[in-house]
């Protein structure tokens, strides 16, 4: 039986541990000590949160363009062709995010490749197969220091 955790413990877990995950041989034990629970209890809880989808994963968040090359790309797709073109774009393994957005440029996706040359050739391939132009808007500068996502914005009464 999975122990019941309070909302407060959940917010603390999700809010306080989005960065500085311990780089020690037993990171979960270190985390459990800070949360005042046992390592086993924490591991079971994390597994349950992952299974229900509240946690996407635990681990490193990589900065774009440090390894390989990536870009944010946009296309203006006629509404009647949107699903077909969206499926085409999603079928590329190098596309990891693909969103429909409300704008003249209505398809937005991130393309990642091992280097600039490969990235360019994927973008050209997309243009050729769709017959549409792909706007490539690579990151030029990152202005955000990423400490994770502050969950007190969700109306956490304890924040």
């Amino acid at each position: 039986m999975h122990p019941v955790h309070s909302q407060q413990q959940l917010y603390r877990l999700l809010n306080d541990f989005q960065h500085d995950f311990p780089l020690s041989p037993t990171p979960y034990a270190d985390m459990a000590a800070k949360l005042g629970m046992s390592e086993t209890e924490l591991l079971e809880w994390l597994k349950a949160l992952q299974d229900e989808g509240s946690i996407s994963r635990i681990g490193a968040v990589f900065r774009p363009n440090r390894i390989g090359a990536s870009t944010l790309a946009a296309m203006a797709v006629p509404e009647t062709r949107l699903q077909t073109v969206a499926d085409l774009i999603s079928s590329y393994p190098s596309v990891n995010h693909n969103y429909k957005r409300e704008h003249h440029f209505n398809l937005w996706f991130v393309v990642t490749a091992e280097n600039e040359t490969r990235l360019e050739s994927i973008l050209r391939d997309m243009e050729q197969r769709s017959g549409l132009r792909v706007l490539s808007l690579p990151m030029e500068k990152d202005y955000h220091i990423d400490l994770g996502f502050p969950l007190q914005l969700a109306g956490n009464p304890h924040a």
Partner: peptide, 22 residues
């Protein structure tokens, strides 16, 4: 080392914003 040089932006729990109501 990858954290120090910025390849890794941060390490920790990656919450699912949608599931959490965002």
């Amino acid at each position: 080392a990858m954290t120090d040089c910025g390849i890794i932006r941060r390490s920790g729990i990656v919450p699912n914003h949608y599931k959490l109501g965002f």
